[in-house]
Write a protein that binds this DNA or RNA. Sequence first.
DNA 1: CTGTTAGCGCCTTCAA
DNA 2: TTGAAGGCGCTAACAG
Lengths: 316, 316
Amino acid sequence: MSTINDVSRLAGVSKATVSRVLSGSRGVKEESRQAVLKAVDELNYRPNVIAQSLLSQSTGCIGVICAQDNIHQTTDYLYALEKQLSDHQKHLLLRFANTKAEVLRALNELSCGLCDDILIIGARFALNIDQENVIMVDCMDQDNGNNIQFDHAFAAETACNYLASQGRHQIALIHPLSSGFAEQVLLGYKQALEKNFLPFNRNLVFMGSSSSSVALQELLNNASTFNFNALLVANELEAQRVIPQLQAFNKSVPGDVMVFSLAGSLNLPGIPTIPAIEYSMDAMAARIVSWLDEKTQMLGGCVLRGDLIIPDMGKR
Amino acid sequence: MSTINDVSRLAGVSKATVSRVLSGSRGVKEESRQAVLKAVDELNYRPNVIAQSLLSQSTGCIGVICAQDNIHQTTDYLYALEKQLSDHQKHLLLRFANTKAEVLRALNELSCGLCDDILIIGARFALNIDQENVIMVDCMDQDNGNNIQFDHAFAAETACNYLASQGRHQIALIHPLSSGFAEQVLLGYKQALEKNFLPFNRNLVFMGSSSSSVALQELLNNASTFNFNALLVANELEAQRVIPQLQAFNKSVPGDVMVFSLAGSLNLPGIPTIPAIEYSMDAMAARIVSWLDEKTQMLGGCVLRGDLIIPDMGKR
DNA sequence: CTGTTAGCGCCTTCAA
DNA sequence: TTGAAGGCGCTAACAG
């Protein structure tokens, strides 16, 4: 790799002049400018970003620690983020981490001058990090530091409103406590019921079950007493787990029970599409990058709302 | 961030001694060693990797350009790669690119001193790159530079052998030319037929069709003349596209037609598992990293073979 | 055993 | 309009 010295020598000017031409080429005689450009071209010279970083104390690298369990959503995140970041001349440094210890290790290894900022995405465990340059996205930690959250209460409320509008008045809810958002979901759920003058039946709500499968079995066992014709689940994976189970008990979907995913719907051939709340990864990524760019300390974090997606009935 | 100067001042020694303690701390008086360690701890000092990189002319960053169309397989690649890389103290710099132009742009933007090496994964277009530090993985380019390929002929041969062993002697094949591997697949297919003393019927082979759907329709239209009881497709997505179509024509899967994916099977709840060849991403990642580490110029590239995966019949 | 010196490649004063 | 010099943080060679 050729350096600025090679260029300056070949062009017959000083390093400073080369630097001036390549940066804000102002106050350089046209003649020397051309000489520099020619030399740059001949040598195929590219300024070394490492040297530039050393001087500017910033690398343009953003560390991204993916702590999601749902690998499919991770890809959506990454794709949107990478697009935004590279549009803004930033680099995405990727790490995966499944436990708190792994996240902390990744954080530690990335905090060595390589990254300007670090994103932690989708951690379902408390982290308690207060580094200034760390942003948490869709993580459990709410209070400390910069963070971006999804509005789970809003999602649940929208879901219930939609279901009620479809004549579904017995709405069951299965949501694992371990997600960390069960409370918010319950809040939105209750709010929507109230607004629709529907009674709250705690026998239809399962948040502490060991698994969604167990919860569903209880639900089905009690169906003769507490019937339900809609089922809210946390995400698309839960949905696809729950649908065959319903069908096994002779409940048609969505005929007898309409299943609604509170976070995204799988769009794969061969899989039924169900109504869902979907969060725009592009919107999220855009907000993160603008945050990174402006360095505005959005203290208290920011909240993102999802869109209601309903399956295309015409296609059935 | 504190620097080596702060440490040396606080510890009352020179920068060189600090550096010595932190690297291969040999030949340093225990007393000064302790002083340095204490100062390091107090100041929470971390050597700046950028400065180290400038000196060593290597950053430990590996650029990874994902050019896959199949986003799900991308995640598998990334996950395996990141694990291997971080185990070897390397960083993964991620880019997505869908066209040749985008790949070249990404390559250009990563070739500025930031990355020691660059991986291009899954490009389905000719690239003709001959940078020494670029490795192509599962790309169309075969001849130039370092590359890792999957053994598609071997996969097709294994598939046919397996199908024949299951009594499936009329094996249809749908494989898009655009994959770039159609020839290899055809080779393996023919080889297996020969070894099993089965006739080759060109009416069962579709490689130039505009889509797998069209190919399948032709196949079904001619089924009365040229019957088939097995169907080889390029990957799991094709498989999931083809299965409902078969069922729509009253062909049961795998009863009437056994569908076989030549590259991976989706493991999602609600989706039928089919027999497939699966490539171990871990094996691939391990090989790449050892390549990166040893800098052995494996000229001519290397070839990776997949494993035969058959669905767990007991679970049905 | 330890300090001084000299760069890695770049950019930014400061003089000329 | 330009060149020389200094320094970003670190390590390696060379003296002591």
